[in-house]
């Protein structure tokens, strides 16, 4: 038997009895960052492949989401800071060993590009809104600016491929770089969150797209990503079981502990297995509204971030 306790009456807010420094805004941001990364990756990829007219949902329509997602995500991040007036200090330095520093700089570059990309398709894909707002009539310089942005689409696409991948991976590395939290501390979390982000991005494209051909293509892409994600989750669990005592204790939260139902029930079953099953059915020709698996994937991705952020903070080295 070994029992450890603080006899000096330690009860620090957000630290005791267990860590609670990262709240819902962080989980929401990790989801939105992954979603934006996924959409931007597919938009840039299909633009470079010259398929912007074939898959307008991915290249044009759905790209309205990343600027919104990134802006909301950034606000959520700042909301969870306890010293937010000093947030500009992030941009006075670059700390190569700090994942959060990487993330801050990548966001600073990705967010404006996401806005520019959407803007370049604003009149084309959202002509209805423009015919009401008549922004281009009121502000003449927008015409020249639009021409310049459209000219640089290919440059933006080439920049977005690595940037979106870094953004997607970083949402996982942000957690996995913490040796002190055994549930987060596994190298697969980066790739896992990237794949999950790409998968939610594909799902969002399915919802935004009007063409059946495009919906089907992204249904297949999503199916592939779900399979990879399931494999990575299996590896993650195996990794914990092959790990040290602290990781064995950490995985108990997901397997047999208080997060089991939400992790296996919502994330794995409703968010991955069921949509995969529905998408296979759809490929085989069964009539299934493709929006159902897409929504399930998005909800599963969101819940997954919440589970990891919450459960990870319950795991520790000592005591």
């Amino acid at each position: 038997m070994q029992e450890e306790l603080f006899t000096s009456g330690r009860n620090i807010p957000n630290i005791d009895p267990y860590l609670d420094v990262w709240h819902w805004p962080i989980a929401l941001y990790l989801f939105l960052g992954g979603l934006a990364a996924g959409i931007l990756f597919f938009a840039a990829l299909f633009y470079i492949l010259g398929k912007d007219e074939v898959y307008p949902g991915a290249v044009k329509k759905a790209t309205v989401i990343p600027p919104i997602a990134l802006s909301v995500g950034l606000l959520a991040l700042i909301y969870d800071l306890t010293h937010p007036l000093y947030a500009w200090q992030l941009y006075t330095t670059f700390r190569i060993e700090s994942p959060m520093s990487w993330g801050a700089w990548v966001l600073l570059i990705v967010t404006p590009i996401a806005f520019l990309w959407t803007f370049s398709y604003y009149r084309e894909a959202f002509g209805g809104i423009e015919s009401k707002l008549k922004l281009f009539n009121k502000l003449k310089f927008l015409n020249t600016f639009e021409a310049w942005v459209i000219k640089n689409r290919m440059n933006m696409a080439y920049a977005l491929i690595p940037l979106s991948l870094i953004l997607g991976v970083y949402t996982g590395i942000l957690l996995s770089a913490f040796n002190a939290r055994p549930l987060w501390n596994n190298a697969i979390l980066g790739p896992l969150f990237l794949v999950s982000g790409l998968s939610t991005g594909a799902a969002a494209i399915i919802i935004m797209s009007k063409s059946m051909k495009e919906k089907h293509l992204f249904g297949k892409i999503d199916l592939g990503l779900i399979i990879v994600e399931l494999a990575l989750i299996a590896h993650m669990i195996m990794g914990y079981y092959a790990g040290s005592q602290v990781q064995l204790e950490a995985v108990e939260l997901l397997v047999g502990g208080e997060f089991t139902l939400i992790f296996f029930g919502v994330v794995v079953l409703l968010g991955l297995l069921l949509p995969a099953f529905l998408e296979v059915g759809e490929i085989m020709g069964i009539k299934i509204p493709v929006i159902i698996p897409a929504l399930l994937v998005i909800i599963g991705g969101l819940v997954f971030r919440f589970v990891m952020v919450e459960a990870g903070q319950l795991t520790r080295y000592l005591y």
């Binding site: 630290i15 010293h83 937010p84 000093y86 913490f178």
Partner: peptide, 23 residues
């Protein structure tokens, strides 16, 4: 210089850090 992001708190295996009421 501290923005109160909490990364260092999460990174400490000894839980030796905390957020001061000033942020």
């Amino acid at each position: 210089e501290c923005i109160g992001c909490g990364a260092c708190i999460a990174s400490c295996p000894y839980d030796a850090r905390f957020q001061h009421p000033d942020g």
